[in-house]
């Protein structure tokens, strides 16, 4: 898997956020950025996404529809996996204020913490 360029990523977001199969026209009308709404551009990007193995397409009568092969969750994991690891090392959040950015805890540790604060109040 490779990191998607922004334009292709925008199309994938539309595909992920809507019911599939999704038609070309639905994709175009759901796109947020108006600049990239030219149908010819969109078709080129869709073909590229098929080549990359992100989508498959099929023809239903007159309409061509698309189905995602790679789920949003998998792709998110791919794109952020590396920095989520480092994120726990507290190096990525140097310049952001978070609610919690410390070390990861086990479910058991979390449970005992919950019990403990309930006892304290």
């Amino acid at each position: 898997m490779k990191k998607l360029p922004n334009a292709e990523f925008e199309i994938m977001k539309v595909v992920w956020n809507n019911e599939s199969p999704i038609s070309t026209n639905q994709i175009i009308s759901n796109l947020k950025s108006k600049a990239s709404r030219k149908p010819q551009t969109i078709l080129t990007l869709l073909i590229r996404l098929i080549d990359r193995g992100f989508l498959v397409s099929e023809k239903n009568g007159k309409e061509r529809t698309y189905i995602p092969i790679i789920t949003e969750k998998d792709y998110l994991q791919f794109e952020t996996g590396d920095f989520i690891d480092r994120y726990y090392d507290n190096s990525i959040t140097d310049l952001v204020n978070t609610l919690y950015d410390g070390k990861r805890l086990t479910e058991k540790e979390l449970e005992s913490l919950s019990v403990w604060i309930r006892e304290r109040s």
Binding site: L76, E79, T80, T93, V96, N97, T98, L99, D101
Partner: peptide, 8 residues
Amino acid sequence: SVTTPMLL
């Protein structure tokens, strides 16, 4: 892509 609420 974030796992905690944050201000940036």
